[in-house]
Design a protein around this nucleic acid. Sequence first.
DNA 1: GCGGACTGCTTACCT
DNA 2: ACAGGTAAGCAGTCCGCG
Length: 851
Amino acid sequence: MEKVGIGVGEALTRDYEAPRDLPLVYLLSAGYDGRREKAFLNLYDPESGRMYLWYDNTGHLPYCLSKEPVEELRKNRRLLEYPGFLRLERERRFDALRDEWIEVTKIVASNPLAIGGEGRGGIRNLLETWESRIIYYQNYIFDRQLNPGMPYRVVDGRLEPLGYELPPEVASQMEDLFKDEEPALREYMREWAILLQCPVPRLRRVAVDIEVYQPVATRIPDPRTAEQPVIAVSFVGSDGLRRVLLLKEGAGEDPKIRGVEVRGYESERDLLAEAFRVLDDYPIVLSFNGDDFDLRYLRKRAQNLGFNAEEIPITVGRRATSLRHGVHIDLYRFFLNRSIQVYAFGNRYREFTLQEVASTILGRGKVALEEGVSELPYEKLAEYCLRDAELTYELTSFSDDLVMKLIIALSRISKMTVEDVTRHGVSRWILSLMRYEHRRRGMLIPNSEDILRVKGVTATRAVIKGRKYKGAIVRSPKPGVHFNVTVLDFASLYPSIIRNWNLSYETILCPHPECRDNLVPGTPHWVCRKRRGLSSLIIGSLRDLRVKWYKPLSRDKTLPEGERAWYNVVQSALKVFLNASYGVFGSEAFPLYCPPVAESTAAVGRYAMTKTMEEAESLGIEVIYGDTDSVFLKDPSEEQIEKLMRWTEEELGIDFDVDKVYRYVVFSRRKKNYLGVYPDGSVDVKGLTGKKRHVPPLLKEAFLRLTQILSGVKAPEDLERAKEEIRDLVESVYLKLKNREFDLREVSFNVMLGQSLSGYETNPQHVKAAKLLRDQGVKLGAGEVISYVVTRDSVGVKPIQLASKRDVAVGKYIEYLRSMFEQLLDALGLSFDELVGRPRETTLDRFFRQR
DNA sequence: GCGGACTGCTTACCT
DNA sequence: ACAGGTAAGCAGTCCGCG
């Protein structure tokens, strides 16, 4: 999110400028004002619910670093004459790769573009530089060691941290809990705890949604041209505001909706002016895809209608569409984040539309429409538009503002502004945090090439072609039905390894000869014994805090509901960071990419797993399966479990806990595929085709019923009855298919397009179907889900929109059913064909032949 | 010309 | 722009057989 060079009118910002004194404000965002040539901060005042802009008054300037001495750089005319170049300063930095302090030269400039903006300009393209790719306002945050999301005050114009301290009882409890840890780790945990215990204020905010007139119902309005009028704008605020602005023809009465303020406008210009007034009024604006649509459209439309620049409070950047004074959170971008989807929301939503996210998280969706928005009567249009704003707001307000709190927690950990943290992925969050810590300790932030020069090597071979190093091990499951299964797993395995083995880009393959014998098992890599690695310290402290403090507290029923909920937010935020902390070091896109760190982490993981499984077996426990960090034990005794846990704790130093207990587990020969039934009869399905998203609903439904039958099995002798039920089930699905008693939706595969249609080298089924749709003029892009049925014609597929029931190759679907069921029936000693039964075999045979 | 073995691509999943 | 490992299904190629 760049606010560089926007040129905000001075008069317009004056109303929002922070006064000389503010007793309590929260730092939410930051930017650069190109007109004033200053960094600014967005300070939220919870008392008034206003946002203030505070402009830097410390004289901070943009800069980058060079390893050439000042005298040498003085000879560089192009540098000295570069527009915006100011001066050179000698400084010291700690070069962690070489483990020594070095002299560097600080190249100071008058504005960030002089260091380097988009394109090839900037000092950073004249010579080799360090720290020149950090966006200026982040640099400002790092240098001043500011903490986004935390409370501050303004005293006589100066910005000061409010100095939140841990409540004494919390401080002493933590001290006690972590008293045996090394001091550096303890200090980090104390600092994290301050950030994470500090209360989050209520955040005054408004959700916005717009509707645009569409002459052709299927054409999506283009915000680059904004040719059509805005016909509705709705707002839903945390202060109870519920307002719809409607564009009307004629001066008739405004539609009445209970509890909603509906205002009709004959002039679109007046409507937009009022919309801008509301947007200006709130410190935080929420949208769903406002970056690419709503706010962008409003801005362009206003320009078309002749608004001058100062009247439009919206600015369009490369990464985001932002507001002049407030903070814009685009929830689409936030929910699109894979880590948020998977770790914070447990994969509950599978697509990224407002309809999907809202209906799965809130249990309420959009207003269903039969016609396009342009044909709707005013009242219906208002209702439709309002609902979208309501859903958008509620996505941040449900469960006592859970999402807002999560965003603030993520912002505090990552040191990123609220606007940035909601728009970037977890690798940026970790990068930001790492840079902040480098700056704090006077460490030079290395360039990627610096790390790779010495540490670009890996020594293991991946199982999968094209991968860079060997990953986790998966033990083949023992096929069959196993009763009384206990699953144990390592708590945060990889972060624990990074912590215990001191893994970090500077400590792996360190320069000290005396560390060379400190080898990582299964690799030729050695690790430093002399110095604590930065990422080891950061990840280790976050791990300890989550495992030993926040996770237990989030489950502590003796705590008040609200407090527990906050602990749960924090532990989920930490989980997101920890889960990605190993992977980033193996990702070329990560600026601190260090393959031997990732490789070593995985290698120690394999070592821990192998040793643990061996130990379990030597204790007489049967290990029936294991994947990465978990082992499945068949009917172990309390004592055996106890012994194994003690062994891992002592020998490996990693917590090894009971994760779950199954009444029984069904394994086929397939890895990452099983069905477990808990003592209460609930079913846990992993990896089986029947639970995959793309499978047709009719088959999914059949699979669900199969699992329900299995959940009723309490002992081996129940299998006979289950067999009968499965037979009936198969028969009923078979008949349903054969008699074509389904609608197309029920037999459609739903597969996501991973790339744009032009990007495919091959022609898989969903792409074929998509191309047929494209030929009909339907626009399709990456991320969209194609629904298609398998057909009898030579193409083999048809998109659901173009298919009829006649087209469906029902025989194919019987084959899918068989394949899906066999994943479980194999293991139960049942055969699909036998279940279907000899008497019916001839029918089936005929059936397959005729398809 | 045909079919089976094989490889590679793609998606969706597991940890 | 976190990682690697696994399964399933399909498309396309190669090769031996007749």
